[in-house]
Nucleic acid binder design. Structure first.
Length: 450
RNA sequence: GGAAGCGUGGCAGAGUGGUUGAAUGCACCGGUCUUGAAAACCGGCGUUGGUUUACGCCAACCGUGAGUUCGAAUCUCACCGCUUCCGCCA
């Protein structure tokens, strides 16, 4: 049989080796056995599952696959006979003719089956993750549910400035020069402000490694397309990525978040029993082309092409992920509390969650100049959604491979944390008070620009 | 930039056209032995899918893709990745 027409029934496994077809996806067994329940839960996030189309494709697949495998089985057994006959020096031409007669039908079946599997996969690829039962049902941001508030927004007895006026006033934040060097949506920091930025990242890393049990990892900032597929940035969000084309090799992509390299640590791996949970923290720059966001947050450091982030990633056994999600979110909140920044935790509703997420909490920090809470961290539980595509597994009690659950959250976005400190800790003379927790990282400095 | 080599199961590593899904070792699981453990010995042990009430049976998978053949881990071609040596270099 020609390899060109060979069809592998285990298409989900093959998919991980095929660059063009990988996508986030649900367990197809769930669709086969429970499609009505799945459709019902997906409806809560505004996704209409076309059950009829799926059933049609599935039925055809089933009969065609059975037929094809029968033909393959006959071909295999006849070919073995040829081998035995020839081994004994007997005439095999009759059997060979019989195999030849199968050929056309077999190849036609294999071709059609291959097409069908691609159609099915394309269909499944458009289906988002199932929300957890306790995710609030809603259509948009407006339906998100505030879970808690911490801290009290300060009242100012002078007109509060925003971080741009404060930073530029100090002569330590310079968007004009950044624009000259690179273009819009980049920033340049100098002196104490640059140090404060660095101090924040160091502080966050230290808290997570020494108090929360994370292992610090240093990772590549350029990654291959397999990794981008692994965590779901590709194929859907290529427009948001910076892509590096190379002449003699496949392209590389600048990471939009450390989630990509860090979560991909376990791609195509089977983690040993007892090795879970894996808890990683990584400080990296993040690069986003933010296509489609023109006009949003054009002022200041809120939305940049390049920003730093300290990212928390956990790889856990399936039954641990709900608990791990709460813990990870608390780890991110701890940073805000140590920095004495008022924030709230919001549970994203079904309609506002990302494609891959089963449940997401956003942490929003108070920004006085905007008189509102702004996102500074997003903590998600992807359950097995990413792991299925990445083939990230662990060995269970029976020593059998089983998909892991993956989670991540910002702990925190460094640039936005800097913004929050500038705005919340400004004084009447436009100086900035350094939070006590950061002073050890600032050589004891208590105030910038006094 | 130049040259060479290599991609096989959880890992290491055999296998160059025919009952090979793949020797062997390690790891792992069960058992014997032991006060217990280790060692030794015995047995088991890939993944995914299809089918079956079930035992089971069947298909596919040896980097990816294409080709030769009745039949491919094995032969041919392309691509990708990795390693080593030389050059350059933070």
């Amino acid at each position: 049989m020609a390899k060109s027409s060979r069809i592998c029934a285990s298409w989900i496994v093959r998919r991980r080796k095929s660059k063009t077809l990988r996508t986030d996806m649900l367990d197809i067994q769930l669709l086969r056995t429970n499609i009505d329940a799945v459709a019902g839960r997906l409806a809560t996030r505004g996704f209409t599952l076309d059950s009829a189309t799926f059933q049609t494709l599935e039925n055809e697949r089933k009969t065609l696959q059975t037929q094809t495998q029968d033909l393959q089985a006959r071909r295999n057994s006849l070919s073995k006979q040829v081998g035995m006959l020839k081994g004994k020096g007997e005439d095999a031409s009759a059997v060979m003719a019989e195999v030849a007669a199968l050929k056309d039908e077999l190849e036609a079946n294999e071709k059609r089956l291959g097409e069908l599997l691609k159609e099915l996969e394309a269909f499944v690829a458009t289906i988002p993750n199932l929300p957890q039962e306790n995710v609030p049902v809603g259509k948009s941001e407006a339906d998100n549910v505030e879970i808690k508030r911490w801290g009290t927004p300060r009242t100012f007895d002078f007109p509060a400035k925003d971080h741009v006026d404060l930073g530029e006033g100090l002569g330590q934040l310079d968007f004009a020069t950044a624009a000259k060097i690179a273009g819009a949506r980049f920033s340049l920091m100098k002196g104490p402000l640059a140090r404060l930025h660095r101090a924040l990242a160091q502080f966050m890393l230290d808290v997570h490694t020494t108090e929360h049990g994370y292992t610090e990892v240093y990772v590549p900032y350029l990654v291959n397309s397999d990794s981008m597929y692994g965590t779901g940035q590709l194929p859907k969000f290529e427009a948001d990525l910076f892509k590096i084309l190379r002449e003699d090799a496949d392209p590389l992509y600048l990471i939009p978040t450390a989630e990509v390299p860090v979560t991909n640590i376990v791609r195509d791996e089977i983690v040993a029993q007892g090795a879970l949970p894996l808890k990683f923290v990584s400080h990296t720059p993040c690069f986003r082309s933010e296509a489609g966001s023109y006009g949003k947050d054009t002022r200041g450091m809120i939305r940049q092409h390049q920003f730093d982030k300290v990212e928390l990633v956990q790889i856990v056994a399936a039954e641990q992920s709900t608990e791990a999600h709460e813990a990870l979110t608390r780890h991110a909140e701890t940073i805000l509390e140590k920095l004495e920044l008022p924030y709230r935790r919001v549970a994203l509703c079904t309609g506002d969650m990302g494609f891959s997420s089963a449940k997401t909490y956003d942490l929003e920090v108070w920004l006085p100049a905007q008189n509102t809470y702004r996102e500074i961290s997003s903590c998600s539980n992807f359950e097995s959604f990413q792991a299925r595509r990445m083939q990230a597994r662990c060995r269970n009690e029976k020593n059998k491979p089983e998909l892991v659950h993956t989670l991540n959250g910002s702990g925190l976005a460094v640039g936005r944390t800097l913004v929050a400190i500038l705005e919340n800790n400004q004084n009447a003379d436009s100086s900035i008070t350094i939070p006590a927790a950061l002073r050890p990282y600032m050589g004891g400095v208590e105030k910038i620009g006094a």
